[in-house]
Structures are given as structure tokens and as C-alpha cells.
């Protein structure tokens, strides 16, 4: 049964998985180009002062920051808008599988694809930065990116939760709260602005539980 759910989610996500992987490759290529450009035209010393003094690296590459968010949003929308339009979720709820297992496996599979995309981009950027900068800078640059990547995860779970919620009023309320929550992940652009990454991790881990709540409300016939 899990294999069948994987098959269904793959049908929904496959084009997005390929397009996002392509965008990740372009982002990596662009990052290499930008770093080389700065070193070449600013000079290594100026670039070093810029990176150290202003605590900035990869800041100008907007895609590095927002690609995980775009991926989370796209995957959530593609997976669950199709399920909820015309109450198609009823088809899934009638399958001979428990409601919890169905929801958690659908979300788990979507998240596994998202994680694969994020990990690919993260390690790609690691390599790109590590080739040009010393270990301390690499560590700080990557640490500053972690909230953005966690933000992509939060956006995926929150999008899924909002779409699965059957009531439009609740969706709007959840949407506003989610926008506020998500913005926390994307506020900082420089190193070391976030000292408590665990809070972000904890939030990401707790959000999937809300999906079960929305699914249960749909099942009960809440309008």
C-alpha cells in the first residue's frame, strides 16, 4: 500500500521534482559564477573584507535563500490542492488504510522528495563555498543558510496543513499565522543572527501533527 501511495505522489510531483532539481543546478552554477566574479573583479582582498567585515556570503543570490521556500510551497500545493478540489480527498479516505497512516505517508513521501532537493542544494553550496573560502567562513555561511532550508520544510508542512483544512475561515486564519511563522526563518541574511536553531527544528517537527488535525476535521464532515 505504501508503494501505491508513493506511486500516486510521484505522479503528482515528478515534473516539479525535475524542474526544482534543474533550478538547484542553475543556482549552484550561478553561485560559482558570482563568487568567481567577485574574487576576479573586486580582488581577493576586497572580497575577503566584504565576506568577513559585512558577514555576507551568497547574500546576493536570492535563489539560495528562497528556493527551499518555493520548493516547499510548490510540493504542498501540487500534492494537496488536487486532493481537496471537488472533495477528491474522499477517494483517499475510503482506501482500506488508516487515516493517520494515509496522511502521514502522503506527507512523509512529499517531504522526502523535498528533503532530497534541499540536501542536494545544501551540499552543492557547501562544495561551492568550500573550494574558495576557509573552513570557518564555510561553517558560518552554511549555518546562516540552515534556517532558510528549515523554512522550506516549515512552508511545506504548513501549506499541506492549510490546504487539508476543510473550512475557508480557518484556512485564512492559519494562512496569516503561517506567514508570520515562516517569515521568522527568512529574516536574517548575515552570519550568526540565529543562535537558537533548535527552536526552528522543533517547530518544523511539530507542524506535521497539525496535518492530522486538519485531516480529522475533513473526515468528520466539518465545513
Amino acid at each position: 500500500m505504501l508503494k501505491a501511495i508513493l506511486y500516486k505522489e510521484w505522479i503528482k510531483l515528478r515534473w516539479a521534482v525535475i524542474v526544482i532539481a534543474g533550478l538547484s543546478l542553475l543556482t549552484l552554477a550561478y553561485s560559482i559564477g558570482m563568487i568567481n566574479y567577485y574574487i576576479e573583479f573586486q580582488g581577493a582582498l576586497n572580497n575577503w573584507l566584504y565576506v568577513i567585515g559585512k558577514s555576507l556570503l551568497l547574500r546576493n543570490i536570492v535563489f539560495v535563500k528562497y528556493l527551499p521556500l518555493i520548493t516547499g510551497l510548490t510540493f504542498g500545493l501540487l500534492q494537496f490542492v488536487q486532493e481537496m478540489s471537488r472533495n477528491r480527498m474522499r477517494l483517499s479516505y475510503h482506501l482500506p488504510i488508516s487515516e493517520k497512516k494515509l496522511l502521514l505517508s502522503s506527507v512523509g513521501i512529499g517531504y522526502a522528495f523535498l528533503l532530497a532537493e534541499i540536501v542536494f542544494l545544501f551540499f552543492g553550496l557547501w562544495l561551492v563555498v568550500a573550494v574558495n573560502y576557509p573552513a570557518e567562513i564555510v561553517q558560518k555561511a552554511l549555518l546562516s543558510m540552515i534556517p532558510w532550508f528549515l523554512g522550506g520544510s516549515a512552508v511545506y508542512f504548513l501549506t499541506s496543513f492549510i490546504i487539508l483544512e476543510p473550512s475557508w475561515i480557518y484556512r485564512i486564519i492559519y494562512g496569516i499565522v503561517s506567514a508570520g511563522l515562516t517569515s521568522l526563518y527568512f529574516q536574517a541574511s548575515t552570519y550568526d543572527q540565529y543562535r537558537t536553531l533548535w527552536t526552528f527544528v522543533l517547530i518544523v517537527l511539530l507542524i506535521p501533527l497539525t496535518i492530522l488535525f486538519a485531516g480529522h476535521r475533513f473526515r468528520r464532515g466539518t465545513k
Partner: peptide
């Protein structure tokens, strides 16, 4: 109601 995003073969394989 059906999984509109699937093809004839895909939906049979899924169910």
C-alpha cells in the same frame, strides 16, 4: 469523482 491527474493505466495500478 476520480483521480483526474492519473491515466487509465495508472489509476488501475494504483487501486
Amino acid at each position: 469523482l476520480a483521480y483526474d491527474f492519473m491515466t487509465i493505466r495508472q489509476v488501475e495500478k494504483f487501486y
